[in-house]
Design a protein around this nucleic acid. Structure first.
Lengths: 261, 261
DNA sequence: CGGGACGTTGACGGTCGTCAAAATTAGTGG
DNA sequence: CCACTAATTTTGACGACCGTCAACGTCCCG
């Protein structure tokens, strides 16, 4: 539905690479070239020389405490951020106070693209758990992507991917019923988590029912009720923020009723 | 709300430029450098040398008859398209047949960004009236934007603008009621048309009620009813696809109830 | 002039929002 | 570590908004 269309092969490789490593954390150089998320946020097939140059894109690491903002609406745009650890939400506010969660972002995803067009951010990015990001000044990205074709292409793909993701969210918001929205949401989350080496069937929600509702265009009570309904039908087990998916196929059937698996 | 955040100053300049021109159409060279939409789809402040090079981006013009597709889901992505004349809708289809209109595009806007990420288009672009587009092969764009900084910046801004626009649509779909959605839609349309030299208060809808409804996450009957309600309240005059906005402030109040103008 | 696409309007019902209260959990400070 | 408060979640009752179905009206184009 509104997935990230990533190449699982590369992600698996990254995971494996991580498992094989037995070096102590502090001996690992802080650089993209040996970041275990490299395959998620950097182009593939680079020469070592190109990789060394790309290392220079990351100006700093920044730790974000849970509940605090990475950037907020109106702030000057200077950098994109690659999430190393943690979990974010982005949201926009209408003038009369309503707000809309526009996405949830996890490790390996890039955040801040909204700020490019007017050199100022148009949404808030809030950490839903303690997080760490790589700060990548955008002028460095532009400079280097003039010289490294793979980086240029990569930047374009990341932005295009975000556009396509949002198309999927529009389909969800514009044409799905509550159950379909929540099923779609759960499948998307678990798929992205699985791509990062987590379980296919168990997940911990980092966001409140209200935040889920805001993202899905539902009220928190409807989200809660729909969880309860899924639980009653034996599709999931829900215990607060712990979700265990018992029947993935049933969720897929809810999203896409007419398909014959 | 979900506007395009363009600089009106430049657009006005373009309009003025057009009015001053008394040359016959066929004597105007077919090139960006003297296209009257230049300020809409090209970066500003270029040297004449840079402008000459950018002319080479446009590989061809293509005429699209009303009702036919510029590209469709699954087709190989090769080019972005700048709309010269005409009006498009883009839409995506879910597997079970529902479809969602993701946007309406008019002269000066760029279409096809969704195709970059996977080298294949993920939506359909359909002309709602006879149209003409500039075909801009994406590899040429990438090549030239490595050398012309303003072009690189421009491409990034166009993509970022689309992301921000979609955030606005998500806010609309996720948190607004039918009247707010339609008011927001009308204000956005008329604002974009006005930026192109058309009336601030009158417009002709190029799309059906069903297409409006698909975009706004409503059924066509609801769209029709809401138009009738606005008309009964004296806010607009509606005669099929001709819309005359009688009270812009009232529309703004509907979108943003708590604001005090 | 006639057929088909498009638009309008009405009646009715379902889905989801609203309001309210209780239950459970998380967070804070002693 | 525990008590206490705030935050979050669950569940119920009720109603509003909008979707569904149906019939009719209008416009456009061959």
């Amino acid at each position: 539905m509104f997935d990230q269309a990533r190449s699982l092969i590369h992600i698996r490789a990254a995971t494996k690479l991580l498992q094989n490593k037995t070096m102590k954390p502090e001996t690992i150089k802080v650089a993209c070239s040996n970041c275990n998320l490299r395959e998620l946020c950097m182009p593939i097939g680079l020469s070592t020389e190109e990789l060394d140059r790309i290392d220079l894109i990351v100006a700093a690491r920044r730790k974000i405490k849970r509940g605090t903002t990475l950037f907020r609406n109106g702030e000057k745009f200077t950098s994109l951020y690659a999430i190393r650890t943690g979990f974010f939400k982005t949201s926009i506010a209408s003038e009369d106070g309503r707000d809309q969660v526009t996405g949830f972002q996890m490790a390996g995803e890039v955040i801040g693209l909204d700020g490019i067009v007017n050199d100022s951010h148009t949404c808030d990015a809030i950490a839903l758990e303690d997080a760490e990001v790589c700060v990548m000044p955008f002028d460095r990205i532009e400079e280097l992507s003039r010289e490294v074709n793979a980086l240029q292409r990569h930047v374009h793909k990341i932005m295009s991917r975000e556009i396509v993701r949002e198309h999927g969210v529009m389909l969800l918001l514009g044409s799905m019923r509550a159950e379909e929205r929540l099923a779609s949401f759960l499948l998307n989350l678990v798929q992205r988590l699985h791509a990062r080496g987590f379980s296919q069937s168990e997940l911990i929600l980092r966001m409140t029912r209200e935040e889920i509702g805001s993202f899905l265009g539902l009220k928190l009570e409807t989200v809660s009720r729909t969880f309860s309904k899924f639980a009653a039908e034996g599709i999931v087990e829900v215990k607060q923020r712990h979700v265990h998916i018992l029947n993935t196929e049933a969720l897929k059937d809810i999203v896409n009723p007419k398909a014959c698996h």
